[in-house]
């Protein structure tokens, strides 16, 4: 009986989730554009959390090519052990190395989708523009797979990215706390899944990539 009640409540909650309405503005707002425009390598310190507690501290390396919408990524422990090496492109995610907790494959693919959501502008033109109930300007896109992506900018200039399911359930909320010059200096991602998780990312290093990487030419440590 108890399980049935929980199930009914869950269905009720899900059915109530709806895409937030956008209030039309006299002049359609300029869409916030924090996304990468050049092929860039970013290295972040990542605090991964669940249930409100930090579960792991990791180093995330992303090599993102926005023109091709391709992304390579690696996740390392602070000791340098590669837990995940994967790539993401128009055909989806491919994992080349995965150790626990990424060995299930599902978490690895979700992680790559999260990185794409953070670094790549939504494809195509926005389907609507307006203002949120809180007064933020919002541009809304149809997500490439299914669902919706909102990019919001508050009066203070801070940018948030939200991904909703087809039915309007909030699945991801990403807050970019960096400035206009460096929007990826600090990123906070909140994922609402069967098991909720969060990623708090602090930029260690970013560089535009002009040519293919060549291993072992000089040390990274001396450069800020």
């Amino acid at each position: 009986m108890k399980k049935g009640l929980v199930l009914v409540c869950a269905c009720f909650v899900l059915s109530c989730a709806a895409l937030p309405a956008l209030r039309p503005l006299d002049r359609p707002p300029v869409c916030p554009a924090p996304f990468l425009t050049e092929k860039t390598r970013l290295i972040h310190a990542i605090e991964a959390g669940a249930a409100g507690k930090t579960r792991a501290v990791l180093i995330g390396i992303a090599l993102a090519d926005p023109a091709a919408r391709k992304l390579s990524a690696a996740v390392l422990t602070p000791e340098g052990v590669a837990l995940l090496e994967a790539s993401y492109g128009p055909s989806g995610a491919a994992v080349s190395r995965a150790l626990p907790p990424f060995d299930s494959g599902e978490l690895a693919c979700r992680m790559m989708e999260d990185m794409a959501l953070i670094f790549f502008a939504p494809a195509g033109e926005p389907v609507s523009r307006g203002a949120s109930a809180e007064g933020e300007t919002v541009c809304r896109w149809r997500a490439q797979s299914k669902g919706w992506v909102d990019v919001l900018q508050g009066q203070d200039g801070r940018i948030r990215i939200r991904r909703y399911s087809e039915g309007g359930r909030l699945e991801r909320e990403i807050a970019l706390s960096g400035d206009a010059q460096n929007p990826y200096a600090a990123i906070e991602l909140q994922a609402s899944e069967r098991v909720d998780y969060s990623l708090k990312m602090t930029l260690l290093e970013a560089e535009e990539v002009k040519s293919a990487p060549q291993a072992g030419r000089e040390d990274r440590g001396d450069k800020p």
Binding site: G80, P213, G216, R217
Partner: peptide, 17 residues
């Protein structure tokens, strides 16, 4: 100790100390 991690995704080793 100084640790240098070399990977294909990196242009230069990632240095830890």
């Amino acid at each position: 100790f100084v640790q240098k991690k070399t990977m294909k995704i990196l242009a230069r080793p990632l240095v830890s100390e």
